[in-house]
Design a protein around this nucleic acid. Sequence first.
DNA 1: AATGAATGAGTTTTCATTCAT
DNA 2: CATGAATGAAAACTCATTCAT
Lengths: 179, 179, 179, 179
Amino acid sequence: MTEKQRKILDTALELFALEGYNSISTKKIAQGAGVSEGLIFKHFGSKEGLLDYLVEEGVELMNRELDTLMQISDASERLRATLRFPKTIIDRNPAYWKVQISIKFANHEIKEKYHNSSFMGKAMGILNDTFDELNFENPQMETQLLMQIIGSFFMALVNDEIENYDEMLSFLEKKYNLK
Amino acid sequence: MTEKQRKILDTALELFALEGYNSISTKKIAQGAGVSEGLIFKHFGSKEGLLDYLVEEGVELMNRELDTLMQISDASERLRATLRFPKTIIDRNPAYWKVQISIKFANHEIKEKYHNSSFMGKAMGILNDTFDELNFENPQMETQLLMQIIGSFFMALVNDEIENYDEMLSFLEKKYNLK
Amino acid sequence: MTEKQRKILDTALELFALEGYNSISTKKIAQGAGVSEGLIFKHFGSKEGLLDYLVEEGVELMNRELDTLMQISDASERLRATLRFPKTIIDRNPAYWKVQISIKFANHEIKEKYHNSSFMGKAMGILNDTFDELNFENPQMETQLLMQIIGSFFMALVNDEIENYDEMLSFLEKKYNLK
Amino acid sequence: MTEKQRKILDTALELFALEGYNSISTKKIAQGAGVSEGLIFKHFGSKEGLLDYLVEEGVELMNRELDTLMQISDASERLRATLRFPKTIIDRNPAYWKVQISIKFANHEIKEKYHNSSFMGKAMGILNDTFDELNFENPQMETQLLMQIIGSFFMALVNDEIENYDEMLSFLEKKYNLK
DNA sequence: AATGAATGAGTTTTCATTCAT
DNA sequence: CATGAATGAAAACTCATTCAT
């Protein structure tokens, strides 16, 4: 990957997140990245091809993060890490995830692309096993509920809509008997 | 409001929901509504004016639904109704809310408009009072968490992403000691 | 048809003929016609839609010219008129046919469109009947040959590649025993 | 000439014939030939340079074919060969002439290039001498007419628009007293 | 000789909006 | 109230061409 290719990706990621895929023109991306508009199409084929590339990158990185999560052997510890997961990975790579996730939630077409992707199933698998190990009464329902909660936290965090996230974490940990 | 005015609003609502505000042209709306493109501008000034009108309508109806919720005197009953709230109002007016809510969640600009609107505060007020009356330990945190959960249910429901919603409700009611 | 619509058609016809369909941009047409580029698409849908319209117009006018030819009752007279046909109709509507025919012969896609069109069959029918009435030995072959000759004259005339057309006509009339 | 150079020429010839010079991009040629786009410009300077090279090649080969025709000493035989000329050379080198000729007739710019080229004059010279030797009354007019006919046969043949070419040849030979 | 990254001007087409009727 | 002709700016994308390696 050439330097300019990377620059295009970074710029697009940032702009898509700020104003949405539909509102950002390829011209703006090119200007932001300091390259010619044509280069975007040379490298990514189309505006949607560029988006695909970004989404794919996000999926792969997310899968790697989930692998890390999965390797925590102690179930309580793993559940605690899961609750902290949104914040953890956003903190580790702030700009990147802010935009990746806001793309995901802001956009119609992308939601589809993401949804078929492996990592949702993987995440549910991890959670289900965890609740199982911890002998929760209804691991399946617990999983489903927590997936919703974590999803909504992801969205809230990238939109800076949560101030007292730490407080919320303590609160949740108590609910899940982790304290 | 003339018949054509109403037709424009209904068509726009549906199309915005299906493909997103940015992807729908005024031409498509006009064709769908069977009116001339000019008429949209005569009545609503601009495409954004049309959107504003729709959002405003949604806010007002939501406020009325919340008023109904608020009038439930028994706190347990009220909390139960709150959990059921997303499904209840969507069932009462399926097409309407499917689109109103999917507009809200799919779109950048609209999110802002909605967010400043009164009903979020009102909803939080109701929830806070309810948890208070029910002597929950930390009403504020409970409120914040349940707002997230309910929000994510709204989104899941309009996208038909939840199959076992009733089971989920039972599960939640148990969590909130309503059973 | 509004005045501007007609202006677009006339300008396009002229420019297509001068430099070929592919080499003329919709921008050039709009500038030449003194209208906005968008108007072309409002009225004709696409650049190809504009071409279709022009071709269709040509087919219809050609059919009408052939009807006139067909109404000549005397066979010798009709054959003489047929030989003169290219020049006759080009003289009657010089600019129009110059471009219509040069479009037809210069362009790949259009050739197809024209070829399926009725007037080729109609022309062959007229010629065949004529040679029949005049008791030519092999009317079918005569028809086929003369169609080729007339076609090549059309092309030569619109490209101003023939100086001594009248001489050529006399020569042909002798060949066909019309003198 | 390197192997890649030849591949470029062959690919371009074929593509130009299929879709026209203007509609074929250098990218398509490069892809079809399995070379980089840059190489086309290295070897031929520009897209038009590539075209020039192709046209020149065609002119030279055509000239050689005409030389062969010219060497037929018997005038009747030569005229017969002339009538068969389009079919003869197309059969001898089918792919090559199909495209060379369809380029010539399909394209504006190329027509000019061809027209100034030597072989048209040479062909007319041969025909004129032939009709002279055969004591036709008006060799010049005969020449002009037959040039048109042969031209139109070339075009018809490359477009597969003639089924009964042999029958047509017999018919013509009779017309020219060759039978 | 050959590649492939890069460009900038150009292409067709879409869009929200205005205005005379 | 309603239409539809008309606009101009901007959209995604293509193209021939250059150049460093």
